[in-house]
Design a protein around this nucleic acid. Structure first.
Lengths: 245, 245
DNA sequence: ACAAAAGTGTTAATTTTACACCCATGC
DNA sequence: GCATGGGTGTAAAATTAACACTTTTGT
């Protein structure tokens, strides 16, 4: 399979194409940012300072930048998500993990106008989580325990979006390398286990988890790192994620 | 969690909101329709009769209808997919299975203008598949064996879209009830097995599949239907999908 | 009778789960 | 020494996989 070529006819047609013949929706990205703070899974909420839903909590996000000409079509939706995340969190670097979840496209989800939103979930390291809270006005951005979300009323349909992101996060922690984005650059087996436990809010058998971990090691997904982690008791071996693959 | 209420301030703000302040992308749906014909997995391709990519093959799809006012915001993206599917296949009924896969939002994927597409995959019963082929001009719509897709050049980025839909289809056949949408209203164990085999292009052990099947039966997912299927050899018991759950 | 395909039985291999226990270290 | 938590061993239970075999029917 390969993409078909554009013909001369195509080129001529495109020249005279009238792009504004039909009404268009606005398109936004919304991002559920997760991290672990104090051994609890948290997500980032932003207090809106504009109507609608002014002073209500919402997921970080914003409009996808669409270019103004045929030649300049603007940024990709994925790029928009990465950009909004940087802007809203203040973190200079790209997120460790960013994945599209789904498009949310019911009419009237925004009372102003037709808005279709593409939802993403992002994972950032625990160490960086506190930076955000410190760096921004706490009344503007806030880490919320996911177990406390039931009590919150969120703007728009962000409740459904968040719930879809949470489901996807759990699936990815089980079946992909996502969990490694929720520990530090280097980590011990118990630290990684804690992430799995917190995401599923369920205790895991230490021995059995260790075996799973060792299988990842054999598969070259993780490798031993120099040094030991000093804890209150017996120091634990330190590993790192093998970025190479 | 519940949706926050709109305040009076919101209402006032919305009144004077200027929706056309920023350029917007066009939003389309593209649908990979799958069925099984002659024991092979096939997907529906449409020959475009307009530029760009005129006379090239593409996935069925079209623009999401966006309303023209705040009060009329048009159809949901899911509804757009169902509508386009009905229109392009000519099938009067709703598809047996329709699921969103992902949004495709790179710039320049359409040379005319910025277009963001939400991809879906749909499953229809084998018996209906031939209806479509008969009902429409064969040069316009065509069932293509998925194993032959490598040879085809598809319009836009429909190759990536199709590939994502195929991956999702395989996942769903394994872990959800999707496979039941690819057999007739009633079916035998070997018929359902054939679907699994064709989707994964891999033979399955008849005995082991039977055990899996019987587990579904115990779980109430499927139930025995009256009658027997007359085949070339020993007649097989007929089952049906328990829609109830 | 024979071929073809439905349906059954058996067993090995693998994975999951539960749980007991050992061991190194800081206090 | 003793509590803590890292690290190891073992065995039952459940699932998956491989394959031989029996039964029922059309021709």
């Amino acid at each position: 399979m390969s993409r078909a070529r554009l013909t001369d006819e195509d080129a001529r047609f495109i020249e005279k194409y009238r792009p504004d013949a039909y009404p268009r929706p606005a398109v936004t990205v919304d991002i559920a940012v997760f991290t672990v703070i104090d051994a609890r899974l948290v997500t980032l909420l932003i207090k809106r300072n504009e109507a609608p839903f002014r002073n209500q909590w919402a997921l970080p996000g914003g409009f996808v930048r669409v270019g103004t000409s045929r030649k300049d079509q603007g940024e990709s939706v994925d790029d928009a998500a990465a950009r909004e995340l940087r802007e809203e969190t203040g973190l200079p670097l790209d997120p460790t993990y960013l994945e599209q979840v789904a498009a949310f496209g019911k009419p009237m989800r925004d009372p102003r106008m037709r808005v279709i939103s593409v939802a993403y979930f992002a994972l950032i390291r625990p160490a960086l989580g506190s930076l955000i809270h410190a760096g921004t006005d706490a009344s503007h951005a806030q880490w919320v325990h996911v177990s406390d979300l039931k009590k919150r009323a969120l703007a728009f349909d962000h409740e459904s979006i968040l719930s879809a992101c949470l489901t996807r996060l759990r699936e990815r922690v089980d079946n992909s390398n996502a969990a490694f984005a929720l520990v530090g650059e280097t980590f011990t087996i118990p630290e990684l286990r804690a992430v799995h436990e917190v995401v599923h809010s369920q205790a895991l058998d230490a021995g059995n988890f260790r075996r799973r971990f060792m299988r990842w090691r054999e598969d070259g997904i993780i490798e031993e790192a120099p040094g030991k982690r000093i804890t209150a008791s017996k120091p634990a071996t330190v590993y790192r994620f093998s970025q190479s693959r």
